[in-house]
Design a protein around this nucleic acid. Structure first.
Length: 599
RNA sequence: GGUUCGGUAGCUCAGUUGGAUUAGAGCAGCAGCCUUCUAAGCUGCGGGUCAAGGGUUCGAGCCCCUUCCGAAUCACCA
């Protein structure tokens, strides 16, 4: 039971005893006390006035007196300012909290059991015709962090990925490779597979535009030229052959996709993300059709004269939506229905979360309604975890204008920058090897990148300035990592000097204001984690970690641990430092960010 | 035009279910602090009509309405 829960329970019985009325738990409003007032937690009594039939001050006075008298082990003293009852928490509560954090490696986490709700999270969802870029990086980091947060809140999480591995865009790369590739492979070219394929996708576009230009010069209408260009016709032809299972096309498709997957795996590994189950669109794209036919029979959808199938969503305030083309083939929406069907066969899904950019808000609004109509129990309440675009200083990322920030380049640059930045600092550390220095640079560089992206509210568009790169000072990943390394250094030295954290901490030492406020922050981790889970908001964890280490750095500056002569005080400070390190490590780990022992 | 989401300091962002005369950080700028547990740190200074107006109430950056600005979307593309 947390300190807050204890106080709320005590206050409830206080209200009952004092005023003879049971009030709902919501009426007890507890919040952190403003720094300018004495106390740590504040009970706002305004909601209770109707019950007490007294003035705010008198009500607060009544409750304060009750709490200090009945629960001295919980509340040491109180003061009243207007309708605010400021409570000072008894020191032993804080000490107990430190002990709990010291002994519970999963402080704040809820356990996951067989009965826990099953949450499936789809994220990443790349196309196999080009390498991952900055937008994918945001998606992957958010998806991974969200999965960790949901799991820490007591959900069984299945991380999934739907790979868009078929379609005309894939054929374009394949065709270009056939025409201009001369049998080039990742091995012969030395390129990562996804980059190699991406280059041919670009090559296709270049030649294709050339053809269109020529046709237009010969007097053809541009729209028509785009359809009549020989390359695009060939690509369409290839798509038809793919759908007919043409062995040659399928063979090439398989080979080239495997190159891409090998490349993706490297990028995923560098980003520290992974999946429990990967779906391929080539397997799922036919499944949706069946579901749509089913919906058609049940009268949810209707067929037009040309044979196309539509859903009429005007009653829901939306438009009509195409589900099957007049030639009977699937569209994007149909495929998502098909994927949903397969997933539900594979897992007893309670909650489905799609991590997909906000440009698809409409799509998911529609998908939710359709899945619900088709009888998926989680369809209605599916969560579209919609995130904003990553913008560059001079506008958006456009592959055609060459303003794409490549994921692999970005990762390499961050690590390189961290290395340059760290070199002189890390070398000061004793007995450090080049290999360790590299590893620290990797952790710090990735930490900077991940924190930079995850600290901002996912819904908002964010600005990414590659020129200025990412800060290593202030509200950044490295700042948090640095604080962690500092604490670890203290703990190492303490161990060397034979100073250990006692099993039971002394409760008679007086805590300074700074120490109390630090412990209070630690206490807030649980609530932050719950909120992050309820709101699907990893950013709040990031900001929590920042606040915590900022506070710790102030403590670090003003108080010494190892030079403290009073052994009781020293024990508490050591436990406090250790607790901050543990919570920081856990919090950062929820974001997929590692923390170094030294830096 | 419809729908959805945003608008908080020069810049990048926090701001719990509405709470306390003075709305917070970081960056950038200026000024201090390393024979002392890691200075990627700490301390101080300046910087705001919370887009605008109205409403709800003991109380609004937060809730409701209107307006302005920005983004996304409304395809037989994915």
């Amino acid at each position: 039971m947390s300190i807050q829960e204890k106080i709320i329970a005590a206050a409830l019985s206080g209200v009952k005893e004092l005023y003879g009325a049971e009030v709902p738990e919501k009426m007890i409003q507890l919040q952190e006390t403003r720094p300018e007032f004495e106390g740590e937690l504040t009970l706002v009594v305004f909601p209770l006035l109707k019950t007490s039939k007294k003035a705010p001050e008198a009500t607060a006075q009544d409750l304060g007196a009750y709490l200090t008298e009945k629960c001295p082990e919980l509340i040491s003293k109180f003061n009243v300012v207007k309708g605010f009852l400021n409570l000072s928490i008894a020191a032993e509560q804080w000490i107990k909290l430190l002990e709990e954090i010291e002994h519970n490696p999963k402080f704040g986490f809820l356990p996951v059991t067989e009965e826990s709700p099953l949450v499936m999270i789809e994220y990443s969802s790349p196309n196999t015709n080009k390498p991952l870029h900055l937008g994918h990086v945001r998606n992957n980091l958010l998806g991974w962090a969200l999965a960790q947060v949901m799991e820490a809140n007591g959900n069984r999480v299945v991380k999934t990925n739907i790979v868009n591995d078929r379609g005309i865009h894939i054929c374009k790369s394949m065709l270009a490779w056939q025409k201009y590739g001369n049998g080039e492979t990742p091995e012969t070219s030395g390129k990562k597979g996804d980059h190699l394929i991406g280059d041919y996708y670009v090559a296709f576009d270049k030649h294709y535009r050339e053809e269109v230009k020529q046709l237009v010069a010969q007097g053809m209408d541009e729209e028509k030229a785009k359809q009549e260009a020989p390359l695009i016709k060939e690509a369409h032809d290839m798509l038809v052959r793919w759908e007919q299972n043409d062995p040659e096309v399928r063979g090439l498709w398989k080979t080239m996709n495997d190159w891409v997957y090998a490349g993706f795996d490297e990028t995923y590994k560098a980003l520290g993300v992974g999946f429990d189950k990967i779906y391929y669109e080539s397997d799922t794209y036919l499944e949706g059709r069946e579901k749509v036919e089913e919906g058609l029979e049940k009268g949810f959808f209707y067929r037009r004269e040309d044979g196309s199938v539509w859903a009429d969503l005007t009653k829901e305030g939306l438009d009509e939506k195409l589900l099957l083309r007049s030639d009977g083939t699937s569209v994007y929406m149909t495929q998502d229905i098909g994927t949903a069907k397969l997933r539900f066969q594979d897992f007893p899904i309670d909650k489905m979360i799609y991590v997909v950019g906000n440009e698809q808000n409409y799509h998911f609004q529609v998908l939710s309604i359709l899945l619900d109509k088709l009888g998926f129990k989680w369809g209605k309440d599916l969560v579209h975890f919609s995130y904003g675009m990553v913008e560059l200083p001079n506008g958006k990322m456009k592959s055609r204008e060459g303003t794409v920030v490549d994921a692999d380049d970005l990762v390499a640059t961050m690590i390189e920058d961290a290395y340059k930045m760290s070199e002189d600092k890390i070398k000061k550390l004793e007995g450090i090897t080049e290999e360790e220095t590299r590893e620290i640079a990797r952790i710090v560089g990735m930490g900077a990148l991940k924190y930079f992206i995850l600290k901002v509210d996912a819904r908002k568009n964010m600005l990414f300035d590659p020129e200025e790169s990412i800060d290593f000072n202030g509200n950044t990943g490295p700042f948090i990592q640095y604080t962690y390394a500092r604490i670890r250094s203290i703990l190492r030295k303490a161990a060397e000097q034979g100073i250990a954290i006692p099993e039971t901490l002394p409760t008679n030492t007086e805590l300074s204001e700074k120490e109390i406020s630090l412990i209070q922050h630690l206490n807030g981790f649980t609530a932050t984690l719950r909120q992050a889970g309820a709101d699907y908001n990893p950013a709040s964890i990031a900001n929590y970690c920042y606040e915590l280490v900022k506070e710790y750095n102030q403590f670090y500056h003003d108080f010494s641990v190892l030079r403290e002569e009073n052994t009781d005080k020293q024990a508490v400070r050591l436990a406090l430092s250790s607790a901050v390190a543990k919570v920081v490590k856990n919090g950062m780990s929820l974001l997929g960010i590692e923390v170094p022992e030294r830096m």
